[in-house]
Design a binder for these strands. Structure first.
Lengths: 259, 259
DNA sequence: CGTACAGTTGAGGAGATTCAATCATCGTGG
DNA sequence: CCACGATGATTGAATCTCCTCAACTGTACG
């Protein structure tokens, strides 16, 4: 269970540059030619390590940098005046955090490591200069931010229109495709976050998350053991998201049928 | 009721440049020095007029430009595969639409005029070149996009954590501050959108929107006549948003008391 | 081996939805 | 200028999904 850390966060990989990073096709370097990667590397501080629970940055502190996740997993969240936490996102290797605070005075959310995690720091001031010089880099960064807006819109839509089942199906599918992109299994993976964070993120009570997951399992769509997830019927999960299927065969009936 | 249009969208103002536009402090030009505004004006197509119901751009068509709203009001929305509409935002003068599609192949949403509206077109390709040349412009544009992410996050939060009353209070307050920014009344204004769009945007049924508005009115917080809104107690509305007050004194009781 | 925390399960209740009917408003054409 | 249909808005009643509260189970860790 801890073994996967070794692969991605060994001391060696930490000090490799963007050239060697196997995430470069997902990350910032994708935008720049080989000759410009060196300039990019110059401004990026590589491979800062964090233990579970450690902060990458904190809400309301001065904004300096975005961060690329290199290994591990991160959650971002805001805390309202009343002290309520709101999870705004989960970030996996190859993804960028801090885009919502670019060109702001202060970070608009906090970011904490959900497990042992390494990140690359992208100081925005220097980065903006570089982006002015390299049009494709500016373009790519616009694109990243634009995607972030779209994803947030997606989530908004999910929350405003979809049932608990559909929301959870959506999250599972999102994780699945994001693992696949990194050439990991899209059907067998470990949830980096506790149920409470899932609920918070999706606007559901923990109990509801738990119930829905159990329901999915009873319907043979997934198999769950703690945080270990196995997607057995990907298509069914997609159907759930499309309002096609409802898996809410309330257990009453099956109970009556003596199962 | 139609008089306000004359002020902001008379043929004259349409062909005035950014220099004279009274929205320049809210819009793009804020970022550039006086000497650079001319270069900005060169690439911006000013004052395109649209009637209510006309599209500024349509989802899935090739992305070319962002648009700054000059007068009127716009709603953006996506249509899912099943044909369901999801309103993603309302935009008032001084605000920019299309940021969620920057550096994308195609528009990720459609934009239609909610009333007679004029917009300025910002062709992104040329704009990116200019942004490379003018660091403050690049910076400002990053900032705009970042704000858009944050606002979308705000909305997500609203939908996931807040009741119907709180959501509607939030929208009213948002409109109020946005009108104020333009030095219009923040307490007396006309809703540019129908209840159905409000409901769709806030993840509520039209009936719920109607009920909550009526409730607010019964509690003396606002006065509503069709789309004309008068905020009578701004502080109370803010309290609602902070979970402080609940205005759900269900009418039952007042009915018992013989009203 | 007990404490703490994460996750599951059950019962009951509250807020929002859905369905249905009614009322209001507005632009249009006779 | 008024009647008309259409769309938008309101109100009521019944239903349902999800939340809350509570108890319980499992698991990690000192």
């Amino acid at each position: 269970m801890e073994s996967k850390h070794i692969a991605t966060s060994s001391p060696f990989s930490l000090h490799r540059g963007c050239h060697e990073c196997n995430l470069s096709k997902l990350c910032i370097p994708i935008a720049v030619g080989a000759e410009d990667i060196d300039r990019l590397e110059e401004i990026i501080r590589q491979g800062k390590m964090l233990n579970r629970g450690e902060y990458i940055f904190e809400q309301h502190t001065p904004f300096r940098s975005c961060f690329a996740v290199r290994s591990g997993a991160i959650k971002t969240f805001t805390v309202s005046e009343e002290g309520e936490e709101q999870v705004t996102g989960f970030y996996l290797p190859g993804e960028i955090i801090g885009l919502d605070s670019v060109s702001m005075e202060k970070y608009s959310c906090s970011a904490v490591a959900l497990e042992r995690t390494s990140v690359c720091e992208i100081p925005l001031e220097k980065f903006e200069d570089l982006a002015s010089d390299i049009p494709s880099l500016q373009h790519h960064f616009f694109s990243l931010m634009s995607k972030e807006i779209q994803e947030s819109r997606q989530l908004t839509m999910l929350l405003s229109k979809n049932s608990a089942e559909e929301r959870i199906a959506s999250l599972l599918l999102s994780l699945s495709t994001r693992f696949s992109r990194r050439r990991l299994s899209g059907t067998n993976f470990r949830l980096p976050m506790p149920r409470s964070d899932i609920g918070n993120y999706l606007g559901l009570a923990v109990e509801t998350v738990s119930r829905v997951i159990t329901r999915f399992q009873n319907n043979g769509i997934i198999k769950v053991q703690g945080r270990e997830v196995q997607i057995l019927q990907l298509e069914e999960l997609q159907k759930v998201l499309r309002h096609d299927t409802k898996c809410l065969e309330h257990q009453k009936e099956s109970a009556v049928n003596g199962r």
